[in-house]
Every structure is written in C-alpha cells, then in structure tokens.
C-alpha cells in the first residue's frame, strides 16, 4: 500500500469535497479510500464532513407558513383582483350615470346592467361555492342561523359585493323613475298648467336634461 504524504492529504481533502458532490471519479475514490485507511487525521475529517452534510440534508425544506400571513397574501392578490368585484362596481356606476343622462334608454340599460351584474357576481360565486375542495363538504341545506357563521371570507366578500350591486341598482332605478316623471311633467303637465293664468307664475322651470334638449332641437 502506498503511504500518502501531507501534500497528498491536501489532495485527499479536496477529493472529500468533490465526493460530497457525488462526482468523484472511481480511480480518485479508490485512492482516497486507501489514504483514509492510512491517515487518521483525514479519516476524522472525512467523518466530520460526511456527518455534517448528512445532518444538513436532513433539515426540513419547508416550514409551516402562518395562516394569517397567507390570508394577507389572498387579500393582496385574489381578493384585490380587478375581477368580479371591481367589474360589478363599474357596471353599476355606469348604469346610474346612463339613467340620469338618458331617461328613455334607462329601462333597457338598467335591465342589461342588472343582468350583467348578477351574472358577474352570481356566476363565479356559485361556481366557487360548488367547487369540491373539501372546505364546503357537509350536509345540504344548512339552517339560516348557521349560514353566516359558516361562510368563508371569499363567500362573505361575494355576499357584500352582491349587496352593493343591489344598492347601486336600486339607486339607478330611483333616478330613472325621477327622470321619467320630470319628463312627463315638463312635456305634458307644465305646458297645460301654464295656460291657466292663475297657475302660470307658480309652475316651476324644470332643468332640461341633455337628451331632452336634443329631442327638442329636432
């Protein structure tokens, strides 16, 4: 057996590190084994290195990410996405503005908006609710008192969005009705009242909306 010199100890220690990579050539591995058999110092180093690397490889690659931190991630991503919620609000606002500008078109515009709003909210919500991911598993038909407590944060958010949609739609309808009544008064009732001398002075001047002005100009 060949006895390695201290220079060869240095070579052996480099070989130990290469061996840790798993790509030490067979001939060098054999030479290293021979050296370790003969050199107590290098053998101790090899044992220390192997044990250290083995312990390192036994460390857990994952640690449980805290639930509240994950909730914060959902708040900043999926829940904040310009998807259902924001679309719903934009559609509702557009419906309100449209009703105020053009009373004639308010009915079909509102109907269209309401349908879009309900589809935008209820579709994904129902699909989400029906997805079988285990969290929603349970007996069908929960009691009303238990529904609110059983809702997930996503469901509560969807419900809140639905409430907002209904409020905005109600506002749009009220504005539309008011605009329609104003139009009837302006075009039919007010001119008739102004023909009566006693009432001429007390009939109010009603502001003419943009749509009515265009029609009057025709």
């Amino acid at each position: 057996m060949t006895t390695l010199l201290p220079d060869e100890c240095r070579s052996a220690r480099r070989a130990l590190l290469t061996r840790a990579d798993g790509d030490l050539p067979a001939a060098e591995a054999a030479a290293l084994a021979r050296h370790l058999a003969a050199c107590a110092s290098c053998r101790a180093r090899a044992e220390s290195l192997d044990a250290t690397i083995a312990a390192l490889r036994g460390l857990p690659p994952a640690l449980p990410f805290p639930d509240d931190a994950l909730e914060s991630v959902w708040d900043r991503t999926l829940r904040a996405a310009p998807a259902e919620g924001a679309t719903v609000v934009r559609l509702a606002d557009r419906a309100v503005d449209g009703a105020a500008r053009s009373p004639r078109r308010a009915t079909w515009r509102l109907a269209l908006a309401a349908a879009a709003l309900l589809a935008a909210v209820l579709g994904p919500w129902l699909a989400f609710r029906a997805r079988d991911d285990g969290r929603f598993a349970g007996p069908p038909g929960p009691q009303p008192a238990t529904v609110a407590a059983a809702l997930t944060p996503e469901e509560r958010r969807a419900a809140a969005e639905l409430r907002l949609v209904l409020q905005l739609t109600d506002r749009a309808l009220q504005r539309s009705q008011r605009a329609a009544v104003d139009g009837v008064l302006r075009r039919g009732v007010d001119p008739a009242l102004r023909r009566i001398p006693l009432l001429r002075e007390i009939v109010p001047d009603r502001p003419t909306p943009r749509g009515a002005a265009v029609e009057a100009a025709r």
Binding site: P60, P61, A62, L63, P64, F65, L70, V73
Partner: peptide, 11 residues
C-alpha cells in the same frame, strides 16, 4: 401558492 408557500417560507 398552497403548494409552495411552506417551502419558500422554510428557505
């Protein structure tokens, strides 16, 4: 996210 969050946090 559900699959990788613990691994990223661990690292």
């Amino acid at each position: 996210v559900l699959e990788l969050k613990d691994r990223v946090f661990g690292y």
